[in-house]
């Protein structure tokens, strides 16, 4: 991916933000953060708990207003007078952490229609778009008229994701979509996300605690620590700083450690390997 020119969709320009501006223990949740999302790009955002990931995500669709700095979307300053921030929220779809906790409608279908209706699509359009979205997240047909509360945790989460997809966003931001799912659920969800990127040309920002997931999927990885962006680069280059990542309470993908050990034991292997397939090839290469 590196090298080819991409159109910039969204720019966060020197953003600072503080939640509690008067309280006893003030601290900046974001401190002079700059960040870009290109068209059709898959960005992975990692960082220790409390590093400001969710806060940053909420800045991107104007749910929180930065104290300093601003956001540009398609070249326009979103805090300019007269800018339609509701439309911005349609274009920048945000799936919150534990999104299944926002469900409220009586049926799955109505739940997914909620977004499109709010953004002014007519009934027919909303329903078509909801139908397509439910299909995309891979929910079975018989769910359509079930209550969302009767579904399993993983299915609820798909409903919540579908309800954001249904508004046809241009950037999809997901805050730890796989948290609390079983391995199979995670796998399926990650595949679904990847297929979204490939079939829709959507830009995706994925906040995750799983290094393997971001390493495998992301074109670019952004690392946050204590309200700052520390690294913003291709996965392999970011994970080359695995020592620094560890100091921040993060880690590199497991396979990198395996390769490090092998190298230390005298095998001449590459150490910038991030997933198990690559590791297999690399090991096979040296043993044969």
């Amino acid at each position: 991916m590196a090298g080819d020119k991409k159109k910039i969709k969204l720019i966060a320009d020197h953003i600072s933000f503080e939640y509690d501006k008067s309280g006893a223990n003030r601290h900046k949740a974001l401190d002079d953060v700059s960040f870009v999302v290109n068209e059709g790009e898959f960005v992975g955002l990692i960082g220790h708990t409390g590093s400001g990931k969710s806060t940053l995500m909420q800045q991107l669709n104007a749910l929180l207003k930065p104290d300093k700095g601003t956001i540009y979307y398609d070249g326009l300053d979103i805090y300019e007078k007269g800018y339609d921030r509701k439309e911005l929220r349609r274009r920048v779809g945000l799936v919150f952490q534990y999104p299944e906790h926002q469900l409220f409608e009586d049926t799955v279908f109505n739940e997914v229609c909620f977004g499109p209706k709010n953004f002014g699509m007519d009934k027919k359009q909303s329903e078509l778009s909801a139908y397509a979205a439910i299909k995309k997240v891979g929910l079975p047909d018989e769910c359509f008229y079930h209550s969302p509360f009767d579904l399993s945790g993983g299915q609820k989460r798909r409903v919540a994701i579908a309800s954001v997809l249904a508004v046809k966003p241009e950037i999809l931001i997901m805050d730890e979509p796989t948290a609390g799912l079983d391995p199979k659920g995670r796998e399926e969800l990650m595949e679904m996300i990847l297929s979204l990127k490939e079939s829709e040309g959507l830009s995706i920002v994925l906040v995750s605690h799983s290094m393997e997931d971001v390493a495998k999927l992301a074109d670019r990885i952004v690392v946050m620590d204590k309200g700052h962006i520390v690294y913003d680069d291709e996965p392999k280059k970011v994970f080359a700083h695995y020592k620094e990542l560890e100091e921040m309470g993060l880690a590199a993908p497991e396979m990198m450690y395996v390769m490090q050990e092998l190298k230390a034991a005298g095998f001449n292997v590459r150490t910038d390997v991030t997933d198990i397939e690559e590791a297999k090839e690399e090991i096979l290469r040296i043993v044969t």
Binding site: L63, F96, P99, H101, Q102, K117
Partner: peptide, 13 residues
């Protein structure tokens, strides 16, 4: 606060 934000993100007003 969180729920309101989540619904705002889905276009609630």
């Amino acid at each position: 606060d969180r729920i309101m934000k989540a619904q705002l993100a889905r276009g609630a007003d």
